[in-house]
Design a protein around this nucleic acid. Structure first.
Lengths: 226, 226
DNA sequence: ATCACACTTCGGCAATCGCCAAAATAGCCA
DNA sequence: TGGCTATTTTGGCGATTGCCGAAGTGTGAT
């Protein structure tokens, strides 16, 4: 599993149009600061910052491997939080992140943490949820089927699904409705103009529908503070 | 699908202990010569050879990306043979797992890793194989046809096929023989009493036939350590 | 033995990387 | 406002890369 995660991370970094940003995404998923990661690597923090900001446009693969392996090794030595989380998503590139909360959290608090604007389901805000899944909607369209849709749910469907790459919001909501198990909260991260149909569908299913103008990274930071 | 393959290839190259050899593996899967790949890249053939032979120990990620994308683009423009092969494997319920090795591994080492007992083909143990496929034999019986049997082979037939749900071992070997392309190694995971016919058929095809009493999970762990 | 071809080795060189370390900037909090 | 922390910017420099191009090596065909 270790090597599969490092391979996935490395692959994403290499093919990214912004390798530095992708590296930062992963560092944030591992909840490491630049200073901390630099310390683990035995280098100055500016070295990590140089990579992330793109000062070095084509770092060597030895460097990328070292960065990635350092993060994974750290995680393994500290509860395997990310490694374990990623296990369930094996072979599913559409799932950016999946996480369970240690206790149930009110939807209202989660919405606040991600800077969300409620579009439907305001009466359900006091319900608890037990985890979240961040999904790349465009990749989900091509890779998800009825058989593996459930991978988004972790151990609880009383959870939030957060979609990136959403324009009007219909497709994810239609897909959500087509599955027998429903999430409690659906959030579109930096969507286009979410149309009324998405809100109507959410209302019918008693799903809280939310949009946020925060970036994926900011959303992850907010979720990390819960 | 394109990007999934390039991401996977890039990831394998980055985490490999011999990135150059892994790069060569992929070039051979795409059936390109060094000269041809160099031509596609607009560089001298020695440039490709320098990478593959490890003269450059840590090529930049831009270089790796360019190499990988060039191969995939070429494949797409010439029948999508490799790209299609990868696509076909997804959603096949009989295939439990399919994996390529970053470099060729001796059959003897693979057999050892899975706790295998050689039933036939002991003289072929020094040959290399480049991947493995774990197949649920019972599902394969109902779902496989001549048309999709090749999906078990990934990019190389110089590989191992490992079957679960095997009783006497004849059916899988008959099916293997019926296909024009042959694997190098066939392994039955926790079979019943494998009868002599299976061993005879294997011998005729110069296939190493092996049984293991390890469970599927233990076999996967063993393979993961290769 | 010879030829054609692909692969490999190697020296050279401009460009870039990997990293240090100092200084600047931004955000948070009392 | 000041202190603290994390991040970012910047210049510098030794090491390495990316590539050219010449020459050598290995293999298969004739």
């Amino acid at each position: 599993m270790n090597e599969q995660l490092t391979r996935r991370m490395a692959g994403e970094i290499v093919v990214s149009d912004s390798p530095g940003e992708t590296l930062r995404k992963w560092r944030e998923i591992f909840q490491l600061s630049q200073k901390h990661l630099a310390s683990l690597l035995g280098v100055n923090p500016s070295v990590v910052c140089d990579f992330e900001k793109g000062r070095r446009r084509s770092p060597g693969i030895a460097t990328v491997r070292r960065l990635v392996e350092t993060m994974v090794s750290y995680d393994r030595a500290h509860g395997s939080r990310v490694v374990t989380t990623m296990a369930g998503q094996q072979g599913n590139p559409a799932i950016t992140s999946i996480q369970e909360f240690t206790i149930g959290l009110k939807i209202a608090n989660v919405v606040k943490a991600i800077g969300g604007e409620v579009l439907a389901g305001a009466e359900e805000l006091e319900r608890p949820i037990y985890g979240y899944t961040i999904v790349d909607a465009l990749r989900a369209i091509t890779t998800f089927s009825g058989a593996n849709f459930g991978q988004m749910y972790g151990w609880s469907n009383e959870r939030a699904l957060l979609f990136t790459g959403v324009q009007f919001g219909r497709s994810p909501m239609i897909a959500v409705r087509a599955h027998p198990v429903k999430p409690r909260l659906v959030c579109y991260i930096q969507p286009g103009n979410v149309d009324e149909l998405a809100a109507k569908l959410a209302k019918m299913e008693r799903i809280v529908l939310v949009r946020t103008d925060l970036s994926l990274g900011q959303v992850q930071v907010g979720l990390g503070k819960l």
